[in-house]
Amino acid sequence: MATLEHANWFMRGLFAAMSAIIVASVLLAQRGREMFIRRIPGLTAIEEAIGRATEMGRPILFSPGLDGIGIITLQALAILAYIVRLAAAQATRLIVAIRASEVYPVAEEVVREAYDAAGRPEAYRPEDIRFISDEQFAYALGTVGLMARERVATNFLFGGFYAEALILTENGRALGAVQVAGTPDPTQIPFFIATCDYVVIGDEFYAASAYLTREPTLTGSLVGQDIVKGILVALVLLGVGIATYLGGAANEAHNLLWQALARGSQ
């Protein structure tokens, strides 16, 4: 997504419309309207993967990715909170490997609160929240070493991953761990698909918190974003049709319209 200095009138209108649709969906959901979410295998498999670690008596490893505090990492931490609650209920140890130093205190707080919420505050071990390194490959190798020494049974990799993704997952596979991965960035998805048992792709990653908790607010927002995507697709098809069948005249009209809308960011 390109960054702009300031919005123009088109973007203001688009943002207002998209936000209104999402907020309206949230309000409808809060009023009790049932919202359907299709099954997402990667997220459904989380409980099964935790169960495997419990049966084998070995720990779980969670990596929230390499990004700093942002939307992707916050979503990863939401998934972490869910996993911690499940793992705490089954008395399974969970290790978190952190790369970005500013994520470290937030992850600590999320894990501690999740253990409290699960009614097992005594199970919380601060030394299991580990800052590995802020260098990409030092982080990858440090995490792989952690996987091997602790003999983890299950790997969860949710967040922003880059070139080190294949190092993490290929080694995890070689160690015999069940692996569930999720990232919105399409670049690393092929590597996850080749090496992990379950993969959560693209938009499904942002749907995770709604899918796992089924809170009306979150499911409403999910449905709202799908409606917005549908509208965008319709606009794209309309534009393609106009450009194809009206050709030059459409281009002229488009240029004039865009210049008018672009005023407001100058």
Partner: peptide, 25 residues
């Protein structure tokens, strides 16, 4: 397109603290 809209919805939820229940108790 899809990821951008997903990020917008997630950003709105975080900004309006609608995600509170999932992070913290």
């Amino acid at each position: 397109f899809g990821i951008a809209v997903g990020a917008l919805a997630m950003s709105l939820r975080v900004w309006l603290s609608l995600e509170r229940g999932t992070f913290f108790s």
